[in-house]
Amino acid sequence: MTVVAARTPFWRKPSVLPGFGLSMGLTLLYLGFIVLIPLAAMILRAAGLSWDEFVGVVTDPRALAAYRLSFGASFVAAVVNIVFGVLTAWVLVRYEFPGKRFVEGLVDLPFALPTAVAGIALTALFAENGWVGQILAKAGLKVAFTPLGVVIALVFIGLPFVVRTVQPVLQDLDKEVEEAAASLGASRLQTFRHIILPAILPAALTGFALAFARALGEYGSVIFIAGNLPMKSEIVPLLIIIKLEQFDYAGAAAIGVAMLTAAFVLLFMINLLQRWSRSRIGAF
């Protein structure tokens, strides 16, 4: 073992276990070929454009309209999900009701159901002759093939995130703290507002950000219900595909890079949120 220790490079601690070279080498090779090199290829492709050309592509009116829709719809959908996600997490943790286990399992459906299937199902449901669409049409609300349809699809796709981030935090919440608030005269609503909400907020925001990030890139479930009219109901991922179909590879790469940047910013924010969340929970 001393031989191993003596040969251990400075950047890792010695260990009696074998296989570091093999497993690490395999990991890096695979990561490099599958993820890093192709991603670099896209950035390289976008870099083929001059700065002005790049700015021109990513800020042309059609692209701007697509950003507005993608960001706007993702935001609205994430707001819906943070409200109903917290509600659902609350109900699942605190109450007993028939079918609870069924709901518990079904929450993860959007992770398991192929997006194309979700897309056509939601379209059938919300089309003007669909089960839900009929009712909404009577109320004068048109959902399918409008930006509202995009929101519906994105609510579906982001549904599990808030529930799954808030649930464990609610579970670990100390009931004595709520009892303390009650004994000091707080109403149930005041206890929720001043005691419970601050405790679950970081987790809820993390779920919100995850749902938002997922919605931004979502394609399959949206395109069936969206209508896909340029400037009106065209999401950013679709714009990339349209550019590809027109053989505008550089343009597709440029918009891809813009989206990737947005995704990284979100990822960074989610990391900060999770750190905040942990510091809150781990206080003592």
Binding site: D174, E176, V177, E179, A180, S183, I195, A199, R280, A283
Partner: peptide
């Protein structure tokens, strides 16, 4: 109007 002191204090940590 009962002042209750909990075993583990149940202070509001935030």
């Amino acid at each position: 109007r009962v002042g209750f002191v909990f075993q583990h204090y149940a202070l509001f940590r935030h």
